[in-house]
Design a binder for these strands. Structure first.
Lengths: 337, 337
DNA sequence: GTGAAAGCGCTAACAG
DNA sequence: CTGTTAGCGCTTTCAC
């Protein structure tokens, strides 16, 4: 067992209050006393118990960040941004991975609530649960990350996925593609659904354009590979000339499928490909992949700002919603030299 | 403020002890009482305070995992493995990113110690600090991840980096390459140093073979790009025909540099390239990159096992050291069709 | 089965 | 400046 303030106080020949003062407001302690306490701490190897401190304080200095997939560089970049911003205010970020599993998501939310985290940053799978609403009503600051709040109830920082989806599809249309396969899913992930709707919307205003949905179950490289194969299988029937993947991980997988096909399919000649997120790996792919860039670190930093604003004592101000506009990045996979 | 057991007890007309029993050993509570308590909890929206619980228990159920770089898929895979294994024993993993900064590493170690984490999994930057030794001596279970313990002091789970480095270099030698640039750094990261030593060792037994060191400051794509450019600049003087990058992120960067060079350099024809880790992106690169595969999730899972074994009450058993052997994965970047 | 009471380690008044 | 004391919310004896 580690020593406590009491043992330090005893050895130093002072009271626990003085030890506490030494720890938190050293200026109120006389130099001589300071030395005695310091010596006692050193010989005992005393380490203040943060848990007790927190219990006293009522709230911790840790912010929980629950993401859909830590394996996705998009989210680690968001986390980095959040971490930096949080550090400025003396908070730290605890990263948790829901892995797109509503049960695990819930478990982490509960964990953070009963750990009395300073707040919750959540990239929710599906619509925010009733449980999340309760958590918030009990006083926990919550900010949705990477997607808007359906009914405006939660503060949120997101990127306009509808616009991004439109942008990506329009880019494919602009380079003359008409038969587009949208690869992504599940559509219960709002971001995916919005990107898809945006793509469909773009196609509506172009003659002969169509967007077909290939809905998968995860936003991973392997799932992209699987869906890519499905698209290839369909090629006899529908001669797709463009693929829009809901994120870069999927795009990387599709690309792999296209390359490994029995009769390899040329990108962008036969099929042009565009992803989403612009993770750094997109630019280093077999064929550098065009993408839609989101300000990842900024998203994380802004989310922390909104969260800290929520933490105010009195009435909760109306929820803020920050929406960034994404940016098209054209590369070789859509014909850029 | 959230309600506490006391308020629940009052509303239910029972004592706090009974509420506690209801929470932890419901079988010792009469059915009728159970109902009353349940109702009180529901109407009050009571959420047990995990912090108080921990204070009482003395130790938390969270294991801290401090990695060199969360942005590196290698580490998120290790984390995933650790998470799964920890969950089986009822523990959860808190991911922290040192970003190869000894100061931040230390801050997180301190944070976890004063939060009385159940244990520490650490992928250390440089040699384990004196502070880490103190932390351990005060009773905190510590396991080194992804590198062996220099003096055998800490339990560890690692992969034989010397063998891996040898393997990678030997592969380049086997396909006829002789002038090899080793890209990686800083060498204060033991894994990098070992891989380099392994490569040098392999070259020693081949006539005319050499390995030159291009030491960088980070294991990132961008740093790989920068070092790649350095190698290219040197090409007039030394006609390198092989590059061994200390990890796949660097390799991806080198590849980018090679492709974007004023006069693009063909891979593997002019320069063969091999990385390390075999992250999933390696296979989807411009030229699929050969690599040295480590059992990432297994590393994480094993680390948790060792940690839980350390947690025993009495004498600490002698430290266990698990060393896995890596595996060569040959792809197009070293000439595999 | 249930209640009363004693802390876990710390901080924040409040006296002195 | 320093000591004393009363909790933060919970669990855990120990009686009843």
């Amino acid at each position: 067992m580690l020593p406590s303030v009491r043992e330090v106080a005893e050895l130093a020949g002072v009271s626990v209050g003085t030890v506490s003062n030494y720890l938190n407001r050293p200026d109120r302690v006389a130099q001589a006393t300071r030395d005695k306490v310091a010596r006692a701490i050193a010989t005992l190897g005393f380490v203040p118990n943060g848990v007790a401190r927190q219990l006293r304080a009522g709230r911790s200095m840790s912010i929980g960040l629950v993401v859909l997939d830590v394996g996705n560089p998009f989210f680690t970049d968001v986390a980095r941004g959040a971490e930096m911003q949080a550090a400025k205010a003396g908070f730290n970020i605890l990263l948790a991975n829901s892995g797109q599993d509503p049960v695990r998501e819930q478990e982490y939310l509960d964990l953070f609530e009963n750990q009395r985290a300073a707040g919750l940053l959540l990239s929710p799978f599906g619509d925010p649960s009733a449980r999340l609403r309760e958590i918030r009503e009990r006083g926990m600051p919550v900010v949705l990350v990477d997607r808007g709040s359906p009914d405006g109830a939660y503060p949120s920082v997101s990127v306009d996925d509808f616009a991004g989806g439109r942008m990506a599809a329009q880019h494919l249309l602009d380079i003359g593609r008409r038969k587009i396969a949208f690869v992504g899913g599940p559509l219960t992930i709002r971001q995916v659904a919005d990107r898809f709707r945006g793509a469909v919307d773009a196609a509506r205003s172009t003659d002969g354009a169509r967007v077909d949905l290939y809905e998968g179950t995860a936003l991973s490289v392997d799932e992209g590979d699987r869906l890519g194969r499905e698209v290839i299988r369909e090629l006899g029937t529908t001669k797709y000339d463009g693929v829009f993947a809901a994120n870069d991980l999927l795009a990387l997988g599709v690309l792999r499928a296209l390359y490994n096909a029995e009769r390899p399919i040329a990108v962008p000649e036969e099929i042009a490909l565009i992803g989403y997120d612009d993770i750094s790996f997109a630019a280093s792919a077999v064929v550098p992949i065009s993408s839609v860039r989101q300000p990842r670190e900024l998203i994380g930093a802004t989310a922390v700002d909104l969260l800290l604003a929520e933490r105010g004592e009195g009435e909760r101000p109306p929820s803020q919603h920050v929406v960034y506009v994404p940016e098209l990045v054209a590369r070789a996979s859509t014909g850029r030299p």
